[in-house]
Design a protein around this nucleic acid. Structure first.
Length: 412
DNA sequence: TAGGCCATCTGGTCCT
DNA sequence: AGGACCAGATGGCCTA
C-alpha cells in the first residue's frame, strides 16, 4: 500500500519549491525594458521561455530561466546520495577551471607589447562597455540564483529528515532551522538517556528505547523523560528565541509551553504533532491530518488486536488478509505515525552505525526504518538485537505482523 | 487589504 | 578580473 522508501514521503514536486516561485519572472524582461523605473523584472509569461518551471523528481531538471542554449554547462542536477557525494551544481555560469592545466613553459618569454606594457588595452565604445557590464551582471545573477537554489535544496533535505508530516504545510526557512535545532537537541537528550541505561543509572525496564512503549506510557519516569527532552527547565531562558521550546511551531497550551500536565494526563506538542497521554490509557496522537488513539494492550480484546495489524506491505510481503487491507478507513494514519516514530529510531541506530548514513542520506533511512521483517532476515544476533531494540514489544505471527500496543480507534 | 514568505535582482565588499 | 557572499529592494503569491 505504502512505499517503503523514505523518499515516498517527501514528494519533491511539492517540497522543492513553493508554487509562487519567482522563476516566473525573467531577467530578459529587465533587459528588454531598460528604461523601466524599477529594477525588478516584470512578471513574464512562462510559456514564452519554452521551459517548464515546475521541477519534477523524476527528471531532476533544474528550473531554468533561459532556454538551453543560454547555458554553457549541463543543467542536470546531480543526484545527491550522501554528503561526500554532494557537489555544487554544474549549471552555474561560473567557468570551471580545467583540471588538466596546460603547464606553462617558464622559459618562454613574455609577450611584449608596443607600449611597453604586457597588455594592450583597447578602447571600448560605450556600447561595448554597456554590453560587457550587462553580460557580467547576467552572469552574476545566474550565479546568485544558483547559489540560492543550492541553499534552498539544502533546506529541503533538512526538511526531509525532520519529523514532520509531508501532508502538513511546508516549513518555512526559519521554521526549518529552528526546528532542526530543537530536534537535534531532543535527539541528543534521547541518546543521553540511552547512555544512562547502558551505564546502569537507569533500569532498562524504566526507560528502554521504545518510543511507543515509553513515550506514550503513563508511568512517571517516562513522562519525566519526555518532559526533560521537550520542555526547557526552569533555569533555561527561552523567552528570546525559544529554541528549546520548539518555537518554530505554535505553543498551544495556556502555560506558553509545548507541555501541559493535567489531572487526567499530559499533552506534549512536538512540531505539528500533539501527543496525549491519558492516565486511563486513552492515549492519542493528533496532527493536522488527523487523530489516532492508543490503548494499553491490557484493555484490548483479541478482536481489537487483530484490527491493529499493519495493513501495509513491507519487503514485498502482504500482511494479513485482504479484508484487513481494505478494511475500515477509520484506522490510524500509520504512515504519519511511522514517520514520526522513525525519527527516534534513527537516533537509536546512529548510536550503532556510521553517522553519515542517516542525516546526510535520507534515502537510506527508509532501509532501516521500514524494514519490519529484517529481524527474520538476518541471522546475525548483534544485528537482530540492534534492529529489535525498538520493536521489543511486538509479536510476529507467520507472515502477519501484529502490534501489541497499538491503535484501536483512529481516524485520518 | 495587510502582512508573511519567497525568488530574484542588484550593488558592495572581500578574496583569489 | 572575476567569483563568493551578503544585505537591501522589489514584486508576486498566499492567507487571515
Amino acid at each position: 500500500m505504502f512505499g517503503t522508501d523514505f523518499e515516498d514521503y517527501c514528494d519533491f514536486n511539492d517540497s522543492i519549491c513553493s508554487n509562487d516561485s519567482g522563476f516566473e519572472r525573467s531577467y530578459t524582461d529587465s533587459l528588454a525594458t531598460p528604461t523601466s523605473a524599477t529594477s525588478t523584472p516584470i512578471k513574464h509569461d512562462t510559456i514564452d521561455l519554452g521551459v517548464s518551471l515546475t521541477p519534477t523528481k523524476e527528471d531532476h531538471v533544474r528550473r531554468k530561466l533561459f532556454p538551453d542554449e543560454y547555458y554553457p554547462f549541463p543543467t542536470q542536477v546531480k543526484e545527491v546520495k550522501d554528503f561526500e557525494d554532494f557537489q555544487p551544481l554544474d549549471n552555474t555560469s561560473t567557468p570551471v577551471k580545467s583540471k588538466d592545466k596546460r603547464t606553462k613553459d617558464p622559459n618562454k618569454p613574455k609577450r611584449k607589447y608596443a607600449n611597453g606594457k604586457n597588455r594592450v588595452t583597447r578602447c571600448k565604445s560605450p556600447t561595448q562597455i554597456l554590453r560587457i557590464k550587462r553580460n557580467r551582471r547576467m552572469k552574476a545573477n545566474d550565479r546568485e540564483r544558483n547559489r540560492m537554489h543550492m541553499l534552498n535544496e539544502a533546506l529541503d533535505r533538512l526538511r526531509c529528515v525532520l519529523p514532520t508530516f509531508p501532508e502538513d504545510t511546508k516549513l518555512t526557512k526559519i521554521e526549518t532551522l529552528r526546528f532542526a535545532h530543537n530536534y537535534i537537541f531532543a535527539l541528543s537528550q534521547t541518546l543521553e538517556s540511552l547512555d544512562s541505561i547502558n551505564s546502569g543509572q537507569l533500569p532498562v525496564g524504566d526507560f528502554s528505547f521504545n518510543y511507543e512503549k515509553n513515550y506514550l506510557a503513563v508511568d512517571k519516569v517516562n513522562k519525566d523523560a519526555f518532559r526533560d527532552i521537550f520542555v526547557p527547565s526552569k533555569n533555561e531562558d527561552c523567552s528570546g528565541d525559544g529554541y528549546r521550546n520548539f518555537q518554530g511551531f505554535s505553543k498551544p497550551f495556556p502555560n506558553g509551553s509545548n507541555f501541559l500536565q493535567t489531572s487526567e494526563g499530559v499533552l506534549i506538542n512536538v512540531g505539528n504533532v500533539t501527543v496525549s497521554v491519558n492516565n486511563k490509557g486513552g492515549n492519542c496522537i493528533t496532527s493536522t491530518t488527523g487523530t489516532g488513539f492508543f490503548t494499553h494492550p491490557a484493555s484490548l480484546g483479541d478482536d481489537m488486536i487483530q484490527k491493529n495489524c499493519y495493513n501495509q506491505t513491507y519487503n514485498g510481503y502482504d500482511s494479513l488478509d485482504s479484508t484487513l487491507q481494505n478494511g475500515p478507513k477509520e484506522y490510524f494514519n500509520q504512515k504519519n505515525y511511522e514517520i514520526f516514530k522513525n525519527a527516534f529510531e534513527t537516533a537509536k541506530n546512529r548510536k550503532h552505525s556510521s553517522t553519515n548514513d542517516y542525516m546526510c542520506n535520507y534515502s537510506s533511512i527508509s532501509n532501516h526504518s521500514y524494514n519490519y521483517n529484517e529481524k527474520y532476515s538476518y541471522a546475525n544476533e548483534a544485528y537482530y538485537s540492534q534492529s529489535n531494540l525498538y520493536y521489543n514489544d511486538q509479536r510476529y505471527v507467520g507472515r502477519d505482523f501484529y502490534r501489541s500496543q497499538s491503535i484501536v480507534n483512529a481516524q485520518t
